[in-house]
């Protein structure tokens, strides 16, 4: 098991470093960070001053290894755009993203599990078809469109929720619905398939023979086993939500990591983009690793090789 963890951890680190260097190189080869920082209408003197001040005139490899050296010492550098330490910046924005990710994961669970269970309990009926249609619709609808539709209905036509912002828990309801909906199909289908498999297994027949029926049968006997693979899928979905809430945060004007990433890219704020990418990659890789480890723990065939 330890070998397996080390092997996966090493792979995760390689992925993070490759993505990080690729991003850094792309920024320098495809854009002029000095001009972007100075602004579209900046005089040439200002652009030249920034190029020298930030060291953009040095070789790209030197700049990258300077940055990486800082990261290894725990110094993520200072944001070119916000003029404050990147660590502080990420701390300020992380709360919104984590809260949104957890809220949307709750939405996913609250919608996908009941739908999946209902579909599994009444396969090939209208309930099953309704659940599948809902899943397909949620998969087909783009986040930005769903977000704007929810805003029009629940914030403009019926002013129940605020249109945008992140200062109260009410601000999180609509974005959590949008972000949560995108994960419903995967979780719902897995719940349905898993539960159908479990319900046709021998031990359920035995349980029924022992008198387990209705809720007791579903919740205590069948769902417990069917949920095990779903937990690992939810871990991966949480990774997506932590790193992939860019559109939702922009539409709802939430000051989270996703929006920080977009603004940093547009402003060639290289230290912030680099740090965010490292964090997103590591978060995703760690959550995927956690999911793999859960599976390996459950299934000895995986960890054996």
């Amino acid at each position: 098991m330890l070998n397996y963890v080390l092997r996966r951890g090493f792979m995760a680190l390689l992925v993070a470093l490759t993505v990080s260097f690729g991003t850094f190189a792309l920024f320098h080869f495809a854009t002029d960070p000095a001009q972007t920082i100075a602004g579209e209408d900046a005089p040439q003197e200002m652009v030249d001053d920034i190029r020298e001040q930030y060291g953009f005139d040095r070789p790209v490899s030197t700049q990258y290894f300077n940055w990486l050296g800082g990261v290894l010492r725990g110094d993520f550098g200072e944001s070119f755009f916000w003029k404050q330490p990147v660590v502080e910046l990420i701390q300020e924005h992380a709360g919104v993203t984590v809260m949104l990710a957890l809220a949307s994961l709750s939405v996913t669970i609250l919608i996908a599990l009941p739908l999946g269970i209902s579909a599994a309990l009444r396969p090939n009926t209208w309930v099953d078809r309704f659940a599948l249609s809902t899943a397909v619709s949620a998969q087909a609808v783009p986040n930005f469109w769903l977000g704007l539709m929810l805003i029009i209905v629940f914030a403009v036509t019926f002013p129940i929720f605020p249109v945008s912002g992140d200062s109260t828990w009410r601000h999180f309801v609509l974005p959590a619905l949008v972000l949560g909906a995108s994960s419903v199909p995967a979780v719902m289908r897995l719940t349905r398939t898993g539960l159908l498999d479990v319900l046709s297994s021998d031990y359920i027949r035995t349980a029924r023979a022992k008198g387990f029926i209705g809720y007791r049968l579903i919740l205590q006997q069948a769902l417990r086993n069917a949920l095990l693979p779903i937990v690992s899928v939810l871990a991966v979905q949480l990774g997506y939500k932590l790193g992939g809430s860019v559109v939702t945060e922009s539409v709802f004007s939430m000051n989270g990591l996703g929006r920080l990433a977009v603004e940093s890219i547009f402003n060639s704020d290289i230290p912030t983009v680099q740090s965010l990418i490292l964090i997103f990659v590591l978060t995703f890789v760690l959550l995927t690793l956690a999911a793999d480890l859960i599976n390996a723990w459950l299934d000895p065939r995986i960890r054996m090789g």
């Binding site: 930005f144 709802f252 977009v262």
Partner: peptide
């Protein structure tokens, strides 16, 4: 208020 999206500003 900082609202990056034009559609959200309209709303």
């Amino acid at each position: 208020r900082v609202i990056p999206d034009q559609g959200t500003q309209q709303a």
